[in-house]
Design a protein around this nucleic acid. Structure first.
Lengths: 218, 218
DNA sequence: CTGCATCCGCCTCGATACTG
DNA sequence: CAGTATCGAGGCGGATGCAG
């Protein structure tokens, strides 16, 4: 409960006092895709101690970065405006981290032998981060993804891209696949036809909109 | 030496495995203002254990984020291209952290009673982060700062702003002050005349260039 | 059943002392 | 000057307990 601090008059040190401790930024990753209940957070943060999660949430709330929404039965945690402002920074960090992936999805510091964990929820922010607004002038589209059974959709509008949990009836195209296949496609290590043949990729709807994936994202 | 890892196939988690541990980002803060020797790093990171610094540096080097430059007598640590790419992300985090300052320079998680530490070196990145490139079209200038005895200069060119340690003979304006005064000026809590009267601010050279501080920075 | 609080073993951290 | 060695304190991870 002592909450170690750098105690420096420096914006960076203060920011790190607030969100620099272990797990905190990953909690924000989860909250950046919408409000989450305590149990959902536990699920999206494999290995976190439940006590630690509770403490981090308390700290985020008392510092005005998150808050509790709803009440009793439906209570959940959501970001405040200050928390929401971390979205572009998080995108930047995600873009930076991409270069350290190897083909197997490992970082340079893998657990000995243990294969890395993967959750389709994490791809939501990764896709948002890969969006290049400067290429999207005048583009408006909704793309729905179902990756390994998890469904979300991307709203592209006003040179912004936002990932939202759940399906969307107004989607221009629905893509059913998994994150590994999408990554391989993005890296041009395979082709759309090939992946459709192998049933790792299904495209329903406007294939022109699907092709935006290659034009607007990197 | 076990280097705990999140072990997730997620760019953000991988990035945090690399630079998310305690002190690491503050080491990068120091290296983002130029190569530093071991002793200089210790000096700019009050409270870090020397063993921890050594371990972090080893880890940064082995992951291709920093490297040793020079040799033997003159050896120092500097960022690689991958490390340098963290500059905009760090600027973003600094901008985000600014809102949590109180008037006294404390963050929301201050050490009980202990006044926060301040080093003019930290202001270099803070000023860089406050630079708004979109306002600087066609502007080219060099501003030299001496804050609490520490001198650096700002090179503004091509809609970019870069802080460099040490003086610059080609500076358009030389500013002698301290960071608290500059912050108060930026917040419009005081005026240039007032601070010059009280000898907390000295401006030598082109005052027009000095005024760029209010136009190009926030 | 969800949302935490408590407890405990271990590992990281922080400070100091020491060495090439 | 540039680290390495050591050791106590505390944060972290996992299991369990408990209240609404």
């Amino acid at each position: 409960m002592s909450t170690r601090t750098y105690n420096q008059s420096c914006s960076l040190a203060i920011a790190l006092d607030l969100i620099g401790e272990r797990w905190t930024w990953l909690i924000l990753r989860a909250l950046l895709t919408g409000p989450k209940r305590y149990g959902e957070l536990v699920e999206q943060l494999p290995g976190i101690g439940t006590n630690l999660l509770a403490e981090r949430l308390k700290s985020l709330c008392s510092n005005g970065i998150a808050r509790r929404s709803g009440s009793g039965r439906q209570s959940a945690y959501e970001l405040t405006a200050a928390g929401e402002q971390l979205r572009p920074v998080t995108h930047g960090l995600i873009c930076w981290g991409r270069q350290f992936w190897d083909k197997a999805g490992n970082g340079p510091v893998p657990d000995r032998g243990v294969p890395p964990i993967s959750k389709p929820e994490w791809d939501m922010l990764a896709i948002e981060a890969a969006f290049r607004p400067e290429r999207s002038d005048g583009v408006q589209a909704i793309m729905q993804f179902t990756l390994s059974g998890f469904t979300f959709h991307l709203v592209i509008k006003n040179q912004e891209c936002r990932a939202v949990t759940g399906p969307c009836v107004a989607a221009d195209v629905c893509i059913t696949s998994d994150s590994a296949t999408l990554i391989a496609l993005g890296r041009r290590e395979t082709s759309v036809v090939n992946e459709e043949d192998k049933v790792r990729l299904k495209i329903e709807g406007d294939r022109q909109v699907f092709n935006l994936l290659f034009e607007l994202f990197e």
